[in-house]
């Protein structure tokens, strides 16, 4: 299976994602430049974390217009799995591939720490082998992760089980004390209606090896490998 990892000017988690795909999972990985108009046969696209275009204007606002994003939109429209991590999530929101927007963290602080997220659904390629209700410990590192959407959008996300990850306590309880950024409905990650595009603020690529202290993030990558393998049988 081949993962395409998009590099925007200012991406900084591209090599982390590549490392996990290639060296931890043992799958094929290619870098895709933001100016490319070709996904080079990728089976899954990762929009990595970082500061695309320096976060100028708004996070993800300029990356939206990169040529590669038209290819990503076409790929996702055909059902191709796409995951945006942190800044990648912000880009997917700006593009309209996911619903909602990001505000500055309620604390007005850049938050960089491990958080707990409860997996809310296994009906996405990136959570396909995770039992709903399982709590994962994965780090975040962002200034704009305060998820915002109109009330009817949040209601639709809830009704359609499109909230994929929610900030909780280590025991899986939703509590504002465990919400690190003020996100509405405790949203840490969501998916689109077709369920093949997922955005998440936590960084699973930073928690996929025992040497890094936590391997909870690895199952997100393993899930999509299994999902793709299953769909090809």
């Amino acid at each position: 299976m081949k993962f395409g990892i998009v590099i925007f000017p200012g991406s900084n988690c591209d090599h982390d994602a590549y490392h996990v795909v290639k060296h931890v999972l043992g799958e094929e990985a290619v870098f895709l430049w933001h100016g490319d108009r070709d996904l080079r046969g990728s089976d899954c696209v990762i929009l990595p974390g970082g500061f695309a275009y320096g976060d100028y204007l708004r996070c993800g606002a300029l990356a939206k217009f990169s040529p590669v994003m038209q290819e990503v939109a076409d790929f996702s429209a055909k059902g191709g799995p796409v995951i945006g991590i942190c800044n990648g999530f912000q880009i997917l929101l700006e593009c309209g591939l996911l619903d909602g927007a990001m505000l500055r963290n309620a604390s007005l602080r850049y938050v960089c720490k491990h958080v707990y997220v409860r997996v809310e659904t296994d009906r996405t390629p990136f959570t396909s082998i995770i039992t709903p209700g399982r709590v994962l410990k994965i780090p975040i590192g962002h200034m704009e992760g305060n998820y915002y959407a109109a009330a009817d959008t949040v209601r639709a996300l809830e009704d359609e089980a499109r909230i994929v990850f929610r900030y909780t306590s280590p025991a899986g309880e939703v509590d504002p004390a465990w919400n690190p950024n003020g996100a509405m409905a405790g949203v840490a990650g969501i998916c689109n209606k077709a369920r093949n595009v997922v955005g998440m603020m936590p960084h699973p690529e930073r928690a996929s090896e025992a040497a890094l202290g936590c391997e909870d993030g690895k199952i997100i990558f393993t899930s999509v490998v299994r999902a793709i393998a299953g769909s090809c049988v």
Partner: peptide, 9 residues
């Protein structure tokens, strides 16, 4: 109606 944490600060 959209919270403005910077404005509040």
């Amino acid at each position: 109606g959209v919270l403005d944490p910077q404005g509040l600060a």
